[in-house]
């Protein structure tokens, strides 16, 4: 699905990603954990194509294509979806209009006809149930006046509508109460299939009780310093990141 090799990225003069290697196959769920400032959100931004970052080295192959050469919109059209940590408000643009534009842009890219309005509305209805999103939210302006929980649910709703191959969830659990967390996780789990993959970026292992990963990676100072199964997340939760930090500092010096 996606293959990341020796990825280096910086913002200004500051190098943040310092050689990431990661291989994600269809049907897999990977969790990326790590302390603040380890480069978790930078990784998701770089993969999605945010222009603030400079990729200085390395390569990323997504479905056989050189991801780094694609524009952000083409990455999305190829099936890469980012659930934002801080979803953006777009006043005056209804969620439905926004999504209809997105859905049809993606279809156009793949040489498909626009989705008929009737089918689109049926899809909205079906997918909004998945994340228990109030039908009213679909007609409201994108994220405007949404609560934190509603915004995150809206991200997963959009993900359901766009049906991506690879979904990156960037700290989707932050700011969610336990009920919202359960709803969001249930939505993500329902969308999981053998043909798509998910990268869950999180601080806490709590989310991983609901979205069970196949692999867990620990990111520290721009590198993946440890990988393992889901038990690694529990271990981190119990011990904290200090041991990793200490170990890493030793190697560095």
């Amino acid at each position: 699905m996606i293959s990341i090799k020796n990825l280096h990225a910086s913002i200004g003069d500051k190098e943040i990603l310092r050689g990431i290697n990661l291989e994600v196959k269809a049907g897999e769920v990977h969790a990326i954990m790590g302390p603040n400032g380890s480069g978790k959100s930078t990784l998701s931004s770089v993969l999605a194509g945010r222009e603030d970052y400079n990729v200085t080295e390395g390569e990323v192959t997504f479905n056989g294509k050189n991801l780094l050469e694609l524009s952000p919109e083409d990455r999305a059209r190829e099936g890469l979806f980012l659930a934002f940590q801080y979803p953006v408000e777009i006043p005056g643009v209804s969620n439905v209009n926004f999504l209809r534009t997105a859905v049809n842009e993606i279809r156009k890219y793949h040489g498909q006809e626009e989705m008929p309005a009737k089918d689109f509305l049926a899809l909205v209805k079906e997918k909004s149930k998945l994340v228990e999103l109030d039908a009213k939210l679909a007609s409201r302006s994108v994220n405007e006046g949404f609560s934190g929980g509603e915004k995150k649910r809206n991200e997963i709703f959009q993900m359901a509508m766009l049906n991506p191959k690879l979904a990156i969830l960037d700290e989707t659990d932050s700011g969610l109460d336990i009920d919202a967390l359960r709803i969001v996780a249930t939505g993500v789990n329902k969308l999981k299939s053998k043909d798509n993959a998910t990268i869950v970026i999180t601080h806490y292992q709590r989310l991983l009780d609901y979205i069970v990963p196949d692999f867990v990676h620990i990111l520290y100072k721009g590198r993946i310093v440890k990988s393992g199964g889901k038990e690694l997340a529990l271990e981190m939760e119990a011990k904290g990141y200090d041991e990793i930090k200490a170990q890493f500092e030793r190697i560095e010096s």
């Binding site: 919109e73 005056g92 643009v93 766009l162």
Partner: peptide, 30 residues
Amino acid sequence: IGEDQLFYCKQRGIDNEKAIGLIVNGYCKE
């Protein structure tokens, strides 16, 4: 007009020109 708004649209598959159209029309909706 926010770079954040534009990037959000692009990440959903909407290109720059269309994104501006959406954002501006939303702003003028009233």
